[in-house]
Design a protein around this nucleic acid. Structure first.
Lengths: 144, 144
DNA sequence: TTGGGTGCAAACTATTTGCATTCGA
DNA sequence: TCGAATGCAAATAGTTTGCACCCAA
């Protein structure tokens, strides 16, 4: 899947390599946005990205954040995670993993080693290619 | 989970029973919306519901569709399925099942007998209760 | 110089809200 | 009757678009 190995935090030189790897021309704003994103594995909304980049004293517009994130998703640099209607996150971790969402705290955690077993494999005909599976396990804070 | 047994299509008398079962007072609009929804197992957007109910010659406002669907979701009568940012569906099938989404055709299919195996069960502490798991397998039409 | 990238503001889409009106137990 | 539900229109949130400007190859 993702074959550009990331070791967080990514510094500027690696960011530029990464952009080149994904065929994204490394403009100032794209580099600055990517620098902010790839400091650590994280789940961010477009708004948080805009705020974060600006908080670092960088100048970038809302439109550019949306354009850039759209581009990064398309190129496979980040993954889009849908939790509910008004909670769309960009996930800087593109490894094969899934998510646990705590509806009480709003916290989103990664989960690995999840294994799906399809008894009903009629559902996916041979004429189709599986692009991926998105799994969100919703939990609440009160014990079972 | 869902313990009101549905046999599609539901006629008016069963609709009213169902609403009562879920503690939803059966107003004219709610009955009409539910009648439209529970004709068959289906995945509908708010807009399609509004159009559909109106197409049957019933008078209902957009706000009421949103209010009603919000209520139906809260009460567990229907399930919300998120596919992408602008594709939110209401699913009249509340049985335990998951979805296959064809990105080329836009088609959404139910899938049963899916089995998740969590090797990494650290991810869900005992202090949490699992509310459910949403799985969307994305496929495209071109063969693998 | 020239085309891609950016910024701003306006447009747009889906959804929510405020409030007056109407419905229904 | 009287609170709950509804309808309309305006408001809002998140995102996209049109277009002029800018910058780097």
């Amino acid at each position: 899947m993702n074959n550009f190995a990331i070791r967080f935090p990514l510094e500027r030189s690696s960011i530029i390599e990464m952009l080149q790897y994904y065929n994204v021309s490394p403009t100032r704003q794209r580099i600055e946005i990517a620098e902010f994103l790839f400091k650590e594995p994280q789940h961010l909304s477009a708004d948080k990205i805009l705020d974060g980049v600006k908080a670092e004293g960088k100048r970038v517009s809302r439109a550019t954040v949306y354009n850039t994130m759209g581009l990064f998703v398309e190129k496979g640099m980040v993954r889009e995670v849908l939790i509910d209607r008004e909670r769309v996150f960009y996930d800087t971790n593109t490894d094969n993993h899934q998510h646990v969402y705590n509806v009480d705290s709003g916290e989103l955690k990664d989960i690995y080693d999840i294994d799906i077993n399809l008894a009903d494999n009629m559902a996916i005909p041979d004429s189709c290619q599986v692009l991926g599976a998105d799994i969100v396990i919703k939990v609440c804070s009160s014990p079972a």
